[in-house]
Design a protein around this nucleic acid. Structure first.
Length: 827
DNA sequence: GAGCACTGC
């Protein structure tokens, strides 16, 4: 989750006038006993029969810790919150010394310095502050290159760790710190610049802090700390596999386990455990930061790397830098290492293990340090349903009103649901019930929240509730990590989410409602305790909670791996099957992805990356879309500009606005008629992008006239510009041969077919479509302009299984074209 | 007749 700015946790009360139910943070800092239960007892009686059982054992799921005082809370994952410990035989936890991250030299002056001075006490109050010295010690000295750091929400790790390391003697290069999301990278960079009394990024040549995200890079010649997205770091590795400009890479939010973070960790392990020739002998330090305490998987992951590297260098002197060869399942989700017996036997227990390597060739042992930092989270009381429910929307409705009648305002309710449909369904029900509330009851405003909701409607959740009013936010998973809603004291968790899963056999994604993991449930619960003690109402039984998986299955085990494998191949990993995966995908998935890359011509028969593959790897696109682009640039196709427009539209969500009412929908259909093309969605996207681009006077008005999303079109234009620039650099030619519109359309569709040969289907006599590769029934998605139309064959750029198999992004093609593409798929 | 959430020189 993004580390929010911690202004509210500086030890001052959140509000100047304490609300009746709020417990000011200072009280916690003074270690006063929580009054949570008293408060509940004093609360007005619920008007309905109590709906919930308190949990049978632990009532408080989150410990609260501030100022280093230990409360008797139990940490979210059930382990004890202990004081910080760094495990390293060479690292004795030393007393906190003066912070060396403070700039040396002349005394500061000016507004930037003033800001830095103002922020200093806030930084010093962060839980991580007291451990600055420990963190520095853990990486000081040779062969102390890896630090695993658990820092819970509010510990301050994302902002402080890079500043702690800045003045270390070994830190002569830049510090990279990766984030899963662009907004987090930018806002953290801004915060750290303020804390250091520096300008941000490219605003002045002397600025010390910068960031790098897609479409937005802001660094200066003096940049020392650089926040960047995981994808950007991978992109930088294409140019510099050894990351020579960096002394340390801090990998943040690892617990989210994006595909990119798994790839980053694999590459970093290779660098850190390999020889240092590629880096001119200089070591790279790696800090891996996670919000969940389960870092044993990471410990094993790096241990295995060191062990293999020492085996390599002692046996044949080769480096493990580009090729990890461990067989063990170093799985994050707790699958134990299968090569346990190879681990150093002398060292037990693992907690005190500091040496990942038993030196086999006389080299000093490398050490992996661990550090645990307590968070700043208020306790959250958790309630379960006594009996399972079939209808979580109805159960949520009951819970909302039970809370509303029982608990005083302020205190907003955040409800986690599965999707737009359940959000809108529950919104309707709540609004109906609100009509029946008496005038003496506080008001309710319902606020839906999901990604497809227009931005200005999403913004409404950030406005505080008016007096005597309670906000009820009905949200998808977007509020679990991406959006932090202020004011929430009550969470209602349906225990489910829509999860995307790639089916190797069918080659299509499924998007189904599945139970969430315990860690996701804890994450949702934590959303109630960010500003004050809170409550979490789980719409399932405690027994059901205990049967949930501990962690969410990492994305790399759930997705199409072709993009990930191409990333590896392009960065010099020849043997991708033996890449050091933190969680190793099944062999079948890897083979399937290799086969797909071969069919795209991105790999040679020998499995080496081809020129086409190298080109595709440099594009910010999936391999399939990249292949379409390369095809469109061929002289005989000559439709690169058009393909760029289409791909740009395919790369954003919701070019066409979703309309709520039937009436609006009909209006939109009529308005868009000029954009629709009978050839299908891709030509329709082309007409839309071209129409928008040709509008020179008022593009916003153009989008409104055509019921097109202005925001989406702005993104399209960014991507279009980026792709045009890249095509120039990669010498992909823009054709200047005149073509008839029919010839152009044919070229475009052929280029699409080259990338999406596997995504083709033919019309059956019964009117359904069946894929040519697997003879699977697939239906044209209702959002397609070809919905309800019958054409002899289709090509589609996306497919997903929800209630049935749907093709999205559909174009009509001739069956003999499809047959031709399937027959010969050479480069 | 339907759209979990992120992300990329």
């Amino acid at each position: 989750m993004p580390e929010r700015v911690h202004i509210r946790f500086d030890g001052e009360p959140i509000t100047s006038k304490p609300a009746p139910v709020s417990t000011a943070p200072r009280q916690f800092q003074q270690g006063k006993k929580r009054k949570l239960d008293d408060r509940i007892d004093r609360a007005p009686e619920a008007r309905t029969k109590p709906f919930y059982d308190p949990p049978s054992h632990v009532k408080t799921q989150n410990g609260t810790q501030t100022n280093g005082h230990q409360t008797n809370g139990t940490q979210a994952n059930g382990t004890r919150l202990n004081s910080t410990h760094i495990n390293s035989s060479k690292t004795k936890a030393s007393p906190v010394t003066r912070d060396a991250s403070e700039p040396k030299g002349k005394p500061a002056s000016g507004p930037l310095a003033k800001k830095r001075q103002e922020l200093l006490p806030i930084r010093q109050a962060l839980p991580i502050w007291a451990h600055a010295s420990d963190i520095r010690q853990a990486l000081r000295g040779p062969h102390k290159d890896v630090l695993l750091l658990v820092g819970e929400t509010g510990s301050g790790k994302s902002t402080q760790v890079p500043q702690f390391l800045l003045s270390e003697p070994w830190c002569t290069g830049q510090i990279a710190i990766t984030q899963p999301r662009r907004v987090a990278a930018i806002s953290l960079a801004r915060r750290v610049a303020d804390e250091m009394g520096s300008t941000l990024g490219s605003s002045s040549p002397g600025s010390k802090v910068g960031y790098s995200v897609r479409f937005d890079q802001s660094v200066s010649p003096s940049t020392r700390i650089k926040f960047l997205t995981e994808g950007m770091l991978l992109q930088e590795m294409l140019r510099d596999p050894w990351l020579k400009q960096y002394s340390v890479v801090v990998v943040d939010e690892v617990h989210e386990r994006s595909v990119n973070v798994d790839l980053v960790l694999g590459f970093l392990r290779n660098i850190v455990t390999g020889d240092k020739k590629g880096r001119g002998g200089k070591p790279l330090k790696v800090v891996v930061m996670s919000a969940t305490a389960d870092i044993e998987g990471l410990q094993r992951f790096f241990e295995d790397g060191y062990r293999l590297s020492s085996q390599h260098s002692s046996s044949n002197g080769t480096t493990a830098a580009t090729n990890g060869t461990e067989d063990s399942e170093s799985s994050w989700s707790g699958i134990s290492s299968s090569s346990e017996d190879e681990a150093p036997k002398s060292i037990t227990p693992r907690k005190e293990l500091s040496n990942g390597v038993e030196p086999k060739n006389g080299s000093p042992a490398a050490s992996i340090s661990q550090c645990h930092i307590e968070g700043r989270q208020y306790p959250v009381k958790t309630m379960y349903l006594p009996e399972p429910t079939q209808d979580f929307v109805e159960a949520a409705l009951k819970s909302i009103f039970q809370i509303h009648y029982k608990e005083p305002v302020p205190g907003d309710i955040l409800v986690f649901l599965t999707g737009q449909d359940t959000v809108e369904g529950l919104e309707k029900l709540v609004k109906e019930y609100v009509l029946g509330m008496g005038p003496e009851v506080p008001k309710i405003i319902t606020l839906p929240l999901f990604a497809a909701l227009p931005q200005h409607l999403q913004q409404r959740v950030f406005a505080p509730a008016p007096p005597k009013t309670r906000k009820v936010i009905l949200s998808t998973n977007i509020a679990e990590t991406s959006v932090t809603v202020p004011g929430v004291r009550f969470v209602v968790d349906c225990g489910k989410a829509k999860i995307k899963q790639f089916r190797n056999r069918l080659g299509l994604d499924s998007l189904l409602v599945k139970p969430i993991s315990q860690s996701a449930a804890i994450q949702r619960q934590g959303r109630a305790g960010r500003e004050a003690p809170g409550q979490c109402y789980r719409l399932y039984t405690e027994k059901d909670y205990n049967t949930l998986g501990k962690n969410t299955t990492p994305e790399i085990l759930r997705c199409d791996l072709s993009a990930a494998l191409l990333v590896m191949k392009a960065r010099g990993i020849d043997d991708v099957l033996n890449f050091p995966f933190l969680s190793r995908p099944p062999h079948e998935a890897l083979e399937k992805a290799l086969l797909q890359l071969l069919q795209l011509g991105a790999l040679t028969e020998a499995g080496e990356i081809s020129d086409i593959g190298r080109t595709i790897a440099k594009l910010p696109l999936t391999p399939t879309l990249g292949r379409c682009l390369v095809e469109a640039a061929k002289p005989e196709r000559g439709c690169l500009t058009e393909m760029i427009d289409i791909i740009a539209a395919l790369s954003v969500e919701n070019v066409f606005l979703n309309l709520v009412t039937e009436e609006k929908r009909e209006e939109a259909e009529a308005a868009r008629r000029t954009l629709y093309r009978r050839e299908g969605d891709h030509m329709t996207f082309l007409a839309t992008v071209q129409g928008y681009a040709e509008e020179k006077s008022d593009r916003k008005a153009w989008t409104e006239r055509h019921y097109v999303s202005h925001r989406a079109m702005q993104n399209v234009m960014d991507i279009r510009k980026q792709l045009r620039g890249l095509c120039g650099q990669l010498s992909l030619p823009i054709a200047d041969i005149e073509k008839s519109s029919e010839e152009l359309t044919t070229s475009i569709l052929h280029s699409l077919l080259r990338g999406f040969a596997a995504n083709t289907a033919r019309l059956m006599p019964d009117g359904s479509y069946r894929t040519l590769s697997g003879n699977q029934t697939i239906a044209i998605h209702p959002s397609s302009v070809l919905f309800g139309k019958k054409v002899e064959a289709i090509v589609f750029s996306e497919s997903v299984f929800t209630s049935r198999s749907y093709a999205r992004g559909v174009s009509a093609v001739r069956l003999d074209w499809v047959a031709g593409v399937l027959a010969g798929t050479d480069g």
